[in-house]
Amino acid sequence: MRTGPRYPEDPALLIEELVALGVMRRRRDGRIDLPDVYRIAFAVGRRGGVPKMAG
């Protein structure tokens, strides 16, 4: 049984897979949203976002 993403080496296909799973969503203007719960858990930054607090 295989686990993990189907195409980890292809960023475009990986994003589409995450959109299909509901982890990310694509906005009408083409930008991608990654909910804070995932962004913080995986330490993914955010352009223009408030930096997380230390501690």
Rank of each mutant, 00 (worst) to 15 (best):
residue 1 M to Y: 09
residue 2 R to N: 09
residue 2 R to Y: 08
residue 2 R to L: 08
residue 3 T to Y: 11
residue 4 G to L: 03
residue 4 G to E: 02
residue 5 P to Q: 04
residue 6 R to H: 08
residue 6 R to I: 09
residue 7 Y to M: 03
residue 7 Y to W: 06
residue 8 P to K: 02
residue 10 D to K: 00
residue 11 P to I: 03
residue 11 P to D: 06
residue 12 A to V: 13
residue 13 L to A: 12
residue 14 L to V: 04
residue 14 L to A: 12
residue 15 I to L: 14
residue 15 I to K: 10
residue 17 E to Y: 03
residue 18 L to P: 05
residue 19 V to A: 15
residue 19 V to H: 11
residue 20 A to C: 07
residue 20 A to G: 13
residue 22 G to H: 08
residue 22 G to Q: 10
residue 23 V to G: 07
residue 24 M to F: 15
residue 24 M to I: 10
residue 24 M to Q: 14
residue 25 R to N: 12
residue 25 R to Y: 12
residue 25 R to C: 08
residue 27 R to P: 02
residue 28 R to A: 15
residue 28 R to M: 07
residue 29 D to I: 07
residue 30 G to R: 04
residue 30 G to K: 03
residue 30 G to T: 02
residue 34 L to A: 09
residue 35 P to F: 12
residue 36 D to Q: 10
residue 37 V to A: 12
residue 39 R to H: 10
residue 40 I to A: 13
residue 40 I to D: 11
residue 41 A to H: 14
residue 42 F to Q: 13
residue 42 F to T: 15
residue 43 A to G: 10
residue 44 V to K: 05
residue 46 R to F: 00
residue 47 R to C: 04
residue 47 R to F: 06
residue 47 R to W: 07
residue 48 G to E: 03
residue 48 G to R: 03
residue 49 G to K: 01
residue 49 G to W: 00
residue 50 V to R: 09
residue 51 P to H: 02
residue 51 P to Y: 01
residue 52 K to N: 08
residue 52 K to F: 06
residue 52 K to P: 09
residue 53 M to W: 05
residue 54 A to D: 05
residue 54 A to N: 01
residue 55 G to V: 03
